[in-house]
């Protein structure tokens, strides 16, 4: 069998990917003075070199894109959960960011110690779920490990009374995911999604699957999976009709900016390569759209 056409096709694909990669790095974040800027990391707390590399990239990007807080999507500390672990797997890798005043707002994953909701640097206030606002954005950090009626009632009241233009929810287990190891947490989806849809949540971030993925809007809501900020499962994506962009070849993190009715996002790999970026317009939720999309660097 003549394998040359296949080899040629592969070469072309690699060349295109490299071109996209190089081009992607030109998409600098549109850093507006009055915008809400934040980063997102998930499944980060390994204490291994990949986490430190990601943290270094976050610091490097902070110089160009001065985000003021980081949302943590759970599994913030793997293995031991003692004071030394919190240093090695959190405060040391992100020291440069902490030193310049960047705040971290955590949600907890299945590998986290529930008692760590009292860890001051995670700003959880001793709660498994909580809410805070930044300018025109209301954030809801939820507990997807244990979803009880109390949390659902709190969430419904919070979403109902939120006056901010944007409503963003984040937690550990993804409602939609093409990760081959875990995939969508349907039982959690059945509990959360009706509230998200009813009360106009715009964007949802989750971790758990150790990949980066942007999904096509589901019932008008944008979903991101960022569970590769320390852990990684190479090649774990099982692409489906709901996959918009997925990247599972290296660890990654996200930068997000919300300026008025526009949300811009950028997913960046351990080596500093932009693997996905785009903009979401907050019109009515059902007509929101993503523009300026960049395919993943693979």
């Amino acid at each position: 069998m003549d394998r040359k056409p296949a080899v040629r096709l592969t070469t072309i694909l690699i060349a295109v990917s490299v071109w996209w990669t190089v081009t992607a790095q030109d998409f600098a974040r549109p850093s507006s003075l009055n915008s809400v800027k934040f980063a997102a990391i998930g499944d980060a707390g390994t204490g291994a070199s990949a986490q430190y590399d990601i943290a270094n990239q976050m610091t490097r990007f902070h110089a160009k894109f001065p985000f003021d807080h980081v949302i943590m999507l759970g599994d913030n500390i793997y293995g031991g959960q003692g004071a030394q672990d919190l240093v090695k797997k959190f405060s040391q890798p992100y020291k440069a960011l902490l030193d310049i005043g960047v705040k971290f707002y955590a949600s907890l994953g299945n590998h986290d110690d529930p008692a760590n909701n009292r860890y001051p640097l995670w700003n959880m206030g001793g709660q498994a779920y909580y809410s805070y606002a930044s300018k025109n954005v209301r954030f809801f950090a939820l507990d997807s490990n244990k979803v009880d009626q109390k949390e659902l009632t709190w969430l419904e009241n919070g979403l109902k009374s939120a006056q901010e233009e944007w409503k963003i929810c984040y937690f550990h287990h993804p409602l939609y995911s093409d990760g081959g190891t875990h995939g969508s947490a349907v039982d959690v989806r059945v509990a959360f999604e009706p509230l998200f849809v009813t009360y106009g949540v715009n964007v949802v971030f989750a971790g758990h699957d150790h990949i980066y993925e942007r999904l096509t809007p589901q019932k008008g809501i944008y979903y991101f999976v960022e569970g590769a900020s320390g852990q990684l499962r190479k090649g774990d994506t099982r692409r489906s009709a709901m996959t918009a962009v997925a990247f599972d070849q290296a660890e990654s993190f996200m930068l997000v900016e919300i300026d008025g009715n526009q949300l811009s996002f950028q997913a960046i790999s351990r080596t500093g390569t932009t693997v996905d970026s785009g903009t979401i317009q907050r019109q009515s939720r059902t007509t929101a759209s993503v523009s300026r999309l960049v395919p993943p660097a693979r």
């Binding site: 299945n110 997807s144 490990n145 244990k146 979803v147 009880d148 287990h173 947490a185 039982d187 959690v188 509990a191």
Partner: peptide, 9 residues
């Protein structure tokens, strides 16, 4: 003892 969610599963 465990509310709804992946841990219960």
């Amino acid at each position: 003892v465990m509310p709804l969610g992946p841990l219960l599963l």
